[in-house]
Amino acid sequence: MKLLSPAVLLRGEPQADRVVPPTGFTARLTLFAAAAMTFLAVFALALSLATGRLASNWSEELARSSTLRISAPAEQVAAQTEAALQVLATTGGVARARALSREEQQALLEPWFGPDLPVDSLPIPQLIEIIEDAQGYDPDGLRLRLAAEVPGAVLDDHGRWRRPLVKAAGRIRALGLLSLLLIGGVMGAMITLAANSALAANGQVIAVLRLVGARDDFIARAFVRRFTFRAFWGAALGMFLGLAALLALPEAQAEGGFLTGLGLRGWHWIWPFFLPLVAAMVSFLATGAAARRMLRRLA
């Protein structure tokens, strides 16, 4: 059975379009299903893109930085810090290294202990921030040198907690993509159900059309085109509602963490505009298959 070509779909067939009754609950069901699914798809897409962005950020930024902790008796801290900086200055792959100031260390502890922490009176280790160059350093070699020259130094290359974070972000991104696929599948199933209902409810229309010599592809085209456009406009509505909801989310703040960074950034805003086209394509394929099946059954 020859079905609808994209050109005919866009140009329209007034003859075929007229023969299908224009209204009915299936029209509303298709519009609602497409709108609701696309609304959800916008969030799944935003989740997927945001987690992808986070994974990328964590992966890149944390991979280029590490921390050296000097835990030594108070009278040796300054000397060991100086020695460690000397070692780092002569280590290949280290772009720069600097000891954090008391204020910076206090700021790091503030979320846990509050702003009035008496840092000076506590035996807090000295932290040194290490920024790698493009090649990066050899952590095992650096550890050996530090063990020999700075006994109180402990190197943390962030790998221990960066890897699970990046892995978690990657899984959330995969979850977002899986959600998109599931949403597309559910939308296809709902539109198929609506198309089946429409075809069954229009059994008399199909019988009359067959009686007067309509080919199955003519009948199928009339339904497929109708459902494709309904899905497109429903999805467009759902997309705009989804985008409005995304815009209404709070802006990402430094202290806001992961959830407030869910929105879209930059060129990622283009992606939701493809969703109505995808919905139309899903509807086109689902309705075409449903129409072929139903017409074969009614033959």
């Binding site: 059975m1 067959r210 007067v212 010599g213 080919r215 199955d216 592809d217």
Partner: peptide
């Protein structure tokens, strides 16, 4: 086939 039947009905 079904297309030929449709032609006949015309």
């Amino acid at each position: 086939d079904r297309d030929e039947i449709a032609e006949i009905r015309r």
